[in-house]
Amino acid sequence: MSTAGPDPHRSFEARRQPALGGFNLTFLSIEVRRLLRNRRTFVLTLVVPVVLFLLLRTNKRIAIPGLEITAATTMIGIAVYGAMLASTSGGAMVSIERALGWSRQLRLTPLRPVAYVAIKILVAMILGLTSVVVVYTAGAISGVDMTPATWVLTGLLAWMASFVFAAFGLFIGYLLPSENVMQVIGPVLGIFSLFSGLFVPLSLLPSVMQDIAPYMPTYGVAAIARFPLVGGAFDLAWLLSVIVWTAAFIIAATLLFRRDTRRT
């Protein structure tokens, strides 16, 4: 056996620990494959946004004072929604893994908890990107017309929503020890989206909802993602919304994560 020798402790010490706390691409790729194999995740993150887009798109500009809805704005809104749904469910996977005892199993390996969370966030963001790409492909096929720069910029900004909501998903995942965490997340995200004008323009909603809208976590990301298309004045409140919500989710997730991995 390799541990035999005059001083076994020294050869034990000589054993290497993994680089990057165990973070690696094999782990990442198996995780992504696993998520895409999950039929519910597939439908939720890739099929639902496309169907929603095809239902909600309008090819003619609707003449409402101060507002233009085009297929493009709808597409961006749905892409944000898709990215959000995908990354939240990606982050919330930790809930299932905790319930199954997988997180505990991983603690018996060299994988550092921080590396595990980094993998979860990346997987969530890859899933979010996939969702944006699929919605944009559906948009391109159905004749959405934007300049190449606007396609790329709005797409990247919509993808930004993934990061915010990967943190949200982790927060929920560490909060709820349930295998059915998506049943909680689905309606919550639906409300966020409705209230921040992702599906239907805010100006068409009752004024109570318009008043609430700026406080929704989706409000800032949605407005920023549409900005390259819509133009006009950039409202710093959007940026503030993104920063505050992201910070809040990260802090909440970190606190719960610490509670979860504390060695008692």
Binding site: R16, P18, A19, F27, I30
Partner: peptide, 9 residues
């Protein structure tokens, strides 16, 4: 494979 990937050897 997944578990193996987090070990150095």
């Amino acid at each position: 494979r997944l578990t193996a990937s987090v070990f150095a050897n």
